[in-house]
Amino acid sequence: MDMYAENILDHFQNPRHKGTLSAATISVEEVNPLCGDKLSLDLIIENGSIKDMAFSGSGCAISQASMSMVAEELNGKSLEEAEKLSKDTIYELLGVPISPARVKCAILSYALLKKSLILLKHQS
């Protein structure tokens, strides 16, 4: 069962940046239509950089690990760098084979990130 590699289970069981940020610059929510799982993402943006980020909500190991890895990857980075994060980056971070049925789970984090970046642009 190589989908449940050690790093996936580690991020699932010990998620990085799990929680909420009351001072968030922006908060977004996405639902995985496949399973109804809901994830929320809070971002604090200062001087064009992600000062802090946190996510909450339940989901499968793949969607949770993916979000945790993306948060770890982008925390402290500039919005430009966040813009550059692609779906392929996420697959690389996960590093396990993702079956077509689980693509939606793997890239839920990507959907949240894109949604927040678009909303940020509209705000400014």
Binding site: M3, C35, A61, R102
Partner: peptide, 21 residues
């Protein structure tokens, strides 16, 4: 353990069950 992950591990043994709402 999320039901999707249960179903995924079942699938690795070719057992079809459903996880979800």
């Amino acid at each position: 353990v999320h039901p999707h992950d249960i179903a995924e591990i079942f699938n690795s043994d070719n057992i079809a069950i459903r996880g979800g709402h």
